[in-house]
Every structure is written in C-alpha cells, then in structure tokens.
C-alpha cells in the first residue's frame, strides 16, 4: 500500500519552477532517496511533503488522505533539518518531550518514550545535557530522535549529514539505515551525495530541474542509467559525444562498434569497464597519467582532440605517460535525444 502519493506537483517561485509536474508513489516502509545537484528541487519537494511549502498545483496525499493544504503541525510527518535546528534554550530531554507534551501525554509516558528513543539513537542518559554541549553528530542524532519519538508515518531527512565530516557521515548513515529497518518507517532522504544514496536507498529518484530523470533501485540506477545526466551524476562515468555511421561510433579516433542507426550519440563507459590494450601502431589514444592507489590504479587517457577519459585497472605498472594505446569498452551504453538507445553488458 502506498503511504505517500505525490501527483503532478509543481512549485513555482516567480517565473522559475523549482518542482515541475513531479509525481512519485512511496510504499510502506520504503526508503527513497531524492538525489540531485543543488537547485534540482529536491529540498523544495521535501518541504512540500512536510507542509512548509504549498504546491502551486498538484496534490500530496498521505495514507490516501489529501494533505496538499494541511499545515505542518497537522501532518503525520517528521522532518530532520540539515542544520539540526535543535532548540538551544531546552535540554535534550525537553527537545524530545516538546511534541509529546503538545499531545498531552502523561508525564510518565513521555519520560518512557523519550528515554527509549534516546537509547535507540545511542544517546541513553543524555537527557539532561544542553544541546550546545553536544558534538555535531550527537546533535544530529538528537534531531533524528526528536522526530522519531512522535512515531511519524513518514520520516523526512533534508541532507541531515551534510555538515558532518566524511567518517561520521558514513557511521550515521548506517545507523539511520539500521533504525529505519528496525522501525520499518517510510523515509524520504534528500541528498546530493550519490554514495549516500547508493548506500541507503531502496529506491533512488534522480532529480534535475524539478523533474525526475530516473526512479529505480540503486543498482539499476548505477548499471543502467536512463539518461546521460544520470550516467554522469552517479559514480564516475566517461561520457563521449560522437557520431554513429554504419554501425560504428566515432569520436576523434576512438571507435566502438555500435549497432544503431546513423546519427549523433553519446557513449557512456564506466572507468572499470574501459579496458586499455597496447596499441598496434599509432593507437586510438595516449596515456596521460597513471595514479596508483594500491588496490587499483586510475589511468587518465587523452584522445587526439584532447578529450580526457578515465580507466580503472588493477595493474599500474603496465602503463606510462605518452604510451599509445587502444581502448576496448567491455560494457557501455549509448544515448540519443536524452534516452538510452543501446546497452552492452
């Protein structure tokens, strides 16, 4: 059953449409990541689900009930802000108890629920602390607990880890995933970090200019990006614009057999799928630089017109600067008019 249904929602600020005819259905217990660059409308969309913005047109329904014009305090959603937005004049316990008090729960019940949630986010016994005494990660955990304690139908996370360092971000990401699995809570997670989306999501919605580019499972988004934009946004991708003639894609000496009709095309190859082999004669390209990371090496390749490509290889020592090489993509996709026309795996 769908918990959240967004139907044809548009949000315009003056002449610009932050969200443009967007539709999405989220199932019970699903964790959906809204992924996109800044300005793609993902935060605006989340704020419309939370009730902080009203759509210019379209509908938002939670549990089958239209909430398009319902104020935030009357929605069964819980929002975690990027800036955590803890109330600094209250201690941790009071931050968590505020919403429960508004619901007129008995004191003992409030205490029990607050302590249980603090335990859940790994902050048992922190109730009396001032929010300003906590580290960034702890503050974000309190913000998460403040939403969870009210047992919302939908948890909304607006780039909650963006202000934390990489190490902490990874740990909190896993904790959020664990908590989400345990509580089976429907979650929408806004991020501009593709690794975060790939690690967390049941489903990724890639957004661009207020529209959906692709909505699919993480592995599908990674392996079969629907558009060149998604291909370039998720992971590292070599994108080469060229022309197809007689079943062969060509760009500045780089040729790949491509069984599609003649015309312009964009070729997308992951670095790990771009094999380099020693050239017979002049070769398609030259080695520009080899960076050895120990477990693997990244080889920068330069085509005759100066276009740079990346290849990932397990052996760095075979290659050196200026060496002529040939390129053999093992798996690639081709796009024309913003849609995939060919995949080879």
């Amino acid at each position: 059953m769908s918990v959240l249904e967004i139907r044809d929602v548009t949000k315009a600020f003056g002449a610009t449409k932050a969200v443009d005819s967007f539709s999405l259905t989220v199932g019970d217990g699903e964790l959906v990541c809204l992924l996109g660059p800044s300005g793609s409308g993902k935060s605006t969309l989340l704020r419309m689900i939370g009730g902080f913005e009203t759509p210019t047109s379209g509908h938002v329904a939670i549990d089958g009930e239209d909430v398009t014009r319902v104020t935030p305090e009357k929605r069964p959603t819980g929002m975690v802000f990027q800036s955590h937005a803890l109330w600094t004049h209250m201690n941790v316990f009071k931050n968590l108890a505020f919403g429960l008090k508004l619901r007129r729960l008995p004191e003992a019940e409030i205490k029990r629920r607050v302590e249980a949630v603090l335990e859940l986010v790994g902050l048992g016994g922190f109730g009396h602390r001032a929010t300003t005494q906590l580290s960034g990660g702890q503050q974000q955990r309190v913000a998460l607990a403040r939403s969870l304690v009210l047992e919302p139908k939908i948890l909304l996370l607006d780039e909650p880890f963006a202000s934390l360092d990489q190490h902490l971000r990874e740990r909190l990401r896993e904790e959020v995933r664990d908590i989400q699995q345990r509580l089976k809570i429907t979650t929408l997670f806004v991020t501009h970090g593709q690794d975060e989306a790939l690690a967390l999501a049941d489903r990724i919605v890639v957004m661009r200019d207020g529209r959906t580019e692709q909505a699919a499972r993480p592995d599908v988004v990674y392996r079969e990006p629907a558009t060149p934009f998604v291909a370039g946004f998720i992971g590292t991708m070599n994108l080469v614009d060229g022309a197809v003639a007689n079943g062969t894609f060509t760009h500045s000496g780089f040729t790949v057999p491509l069984p599609v009709g003649d015309g312009a095309a964009t070729l997308a190859v992951r670095p790990e799928a771009l094999e380099i082999v020693s050239a017979n004669g002049g070769g398609m390209a030259k080695i520009h630089r080899v960076t050895d990371y120990g477990t693997h090496a990244i080889v920068d390749i330069e085509l005759p017109d100066g276009t740079r490509l990346k290849s990932m290889t397990s052996e760095a020592r075979d290659w050196s600067h200026g060496q002529p090489i040939d390129l053999k993509p093992r798996a690639f996709a081709a796009y024309r008019d913003n849609a995939a026309i060919h995949r080879s795996n």
Partner: peptide, 18 residues
C-alpha cells in the same frame, strides 16, 4: 532566530502561536 527552529516546532505539532 533560526527559522528552521520554528519550522521544527511546527513539525512536531505546535501551532503558530505556540
């Protein structure tokens, strides 16, 4: 005053006056 703080309070169920 950080607007997000006010929004967070709306989010947990407080009306504008509260």
């Amino acid at each position: 005053v950080d607007r997000r703080m006010e929004e967070a309070a709306r989010d947990v169920g407080a009306g504008p006056f509260r």
